[in-house]
Design a protein around this nucleic acid. Structure first.
Length: 284
DNA sequence: AAAGTAGTCAACCGCTGTCTC
DNA sequence: CGAGACAGCGGTTGACTACTT
């Protein structure tokens, strides 16, 4: 459609950021807060594109970033989340405080892929390596590997089996096993620290709490729409877009259901974690 | 010591979704 | 309803470093 470029490229710096540029960006955001990235560079006196500023801030300068190596617990959590969400790095990052989508994506590509392969696990399918890739999955709803082009035309087929077993989290046993076996040669302190990290993320819970929710949104203009979303916050986005979600909506509308129960996390129609507020159930 | 190779990660690019007019 | 503007996302690139030959 001949959209104009996001910024005037002729007068923008590219490549690595200098300390001065970083400082300008930090100072500006401290004063004015995040947002309006397009006008930010000019206002902050930076010869950078707004996107570049945003990336630099989010991936590197944000004060709440946790730098340094990933813990074993974080590894396992990333693997679990990836098995459920696929390459939705921003969603995965939302579950790892202090980590960015870019960081996780890089870490996945450089470390975890190899780790999984060495375990005999296919990093894409999370199934055993050398397993035929298309094993009857076509009848199951799979959030992973939805081709970009088909994202918005995810053709719902009401006749599909509503089989969510695919998404049952079975990694807990693995992660516990991993966490308790000390083959790493770490010091006791390090091990203890890692165990704390592990507990923090895994929560010693029986299953991974994704806080995926389904239910009638109690706010916003789409308050009729049923939505699957992560529960955190303003920056969370629906896991499926409206059109995709019609499928789930159709399947579930007639009978209000708790997604986590559908996913196999619970046994009853509405699990104990589901609350009822203002006449609406807030499905966990 | 030099050249080649592999690994890492910050940054860029192009696309999509959402909002506004 | 369509087009433009914008923010955000995921894939890819390329500079840099570490390691190997």
């Amino acid at each position: 459609m001949g959209r104009s470029p996001c910024c005037e490229k002729a007068h923008t710096n590219k490549g690595a950021w200098t300390k001065e540029e970083d400082q300008r960006l930090i100072d500006y955001i401290r004063l004015h807060g995040e947002g309006c990235w397009r006008s930010l560079p000019k206002a902050a006196g930076l010869l950078r594109c707004g996107k570049s500023c945003r990336l630099r801030w989010i991936n590197y300068l944000r004060p709440d970033l946790k730098r340094g190596n990933f813990s074993e617990a974080e590894d396992e959590l990333i693997i679990k989340l990836h098995s459920l969400l696929g390459n939705k790095w921003s969603l995965i990052a939302a579950r790892l405080p202090g980590r960015t989508d870019n960081e996780i994506k890089n870490y996945w590509n450089t470390h975890i892929k190899r780790k999984l392969i060495s375990r005999g696990i296919d990093p894409q399918t999370h199934g055993p390596l050398n397993q035929p890739t298309n094993t009857n999955k076509s009848t199951e709803l799979d959030f992973r590997n939805v081709p970009k082009a088909s994202k918005s035309n995810f053709a719902p087929n009401p006749s599909r089996d509503f089989n969510f077993n695919e998404f049952q989290v079975k990694a807990k046993a693995e992660s516990i096993e991993e966490g308790t076996t000390s083959s790493s040669g770490m010091t006791t302190d390090e091990e203890q620290q890692q165990q704390e990290e592990h507990d923090k993320y895994a929560g010693n819970s029986q299953e991974l709490d994704l806080e995926l929710s389904i239910g009638i949104s109690s706010s916003g203009k789409n308050n009729h729409s049923t939505g699957v979303s992560t529960a955190n916050s303003a920056e969370s986005k629906p896991l499926l877009d409206k059109s995709n979600f019609q499928f789930l909506g159709q399947a579930m509308a007639a009978k209000a259901v708790c997604l986590c129960c559908q996913l196999g996390f619970g046994t009853s129609e509405i699990c104990r974690n589901c609350q009822s507020t203002n006449g609406f159930n807030t499905y966990c």
